[in-house]
């Protein structure tokens, strides 16, 4: 199973992207998207923003569960109070662990925003952030 995570800024700009594979069920943590799917991933997630913008006003919680579907792939969404969208493309529905994953990524994101040299909507280039997200992926996904 493969995952594609994107944090989307307020102007639809991706501030962080990552592809991850699962370690569950004998997986080796390497994403196995087909070539066709790989190049389309950012666009699919981008299209899901339409749905997120529709759904986000109707829910009290930050985690919106699986909002969209595209040919057997689900897109789960999490919207931070600052309207940064965390979108995860995945193959099987797994609400609870994705919720925990998003919550922990949110913690990491908040820590990034606390950095006085970081402006909202800037791409996150920190290697530590990347490493920690991957670790979270290993833990939950």
């Amino acid at each position: 199973m493969s995952y594609y995570l994107a944090l989307i800024g307020t102007t639809d700009n991706p501030i962080y992207e990552a592809e991850m594979g699962t370690y569950r069920q004998g997986g080796d943590g390497v994403p196995k998207f087909s070539a066709e799917m790989k190049e389309l991933n950012p666009f699919i997630v981008h299209a899901a923003i339409d749905i997120v913008e529709d759904v986000q006003w109707r829910s009290n919680s930050l985690y919106l569960k699986a909002v969209d579907e595209f040919y057997g792939y689900y897109i789960s969404a999490f919207v931070t109070p600052g309207n940064i969208k965390f979108l995860l493309l995945h193959e099987t529905k797994n609400d609870e662990s994705i919720r925990q994953f998003f919550n922990d990524v949110n913690d990491l994101y908040v820590k990034t925003v606390l950095n006085p040299f970081y402006n909202v909507n800037d791409p996150i280039t920190s290697a530590v952030f990347d490493l920690k997200v991957k670790q979270l992926g290993k833990k939950y996904l």
Partner: peptide
């Protein structure tokens, strides 16, 4: 949230 322009694209 009231349009589907991105999907269309």
């Amino acid at each position: 949230g009231n349009t589907r322009q991105r999907k269309s694209a």
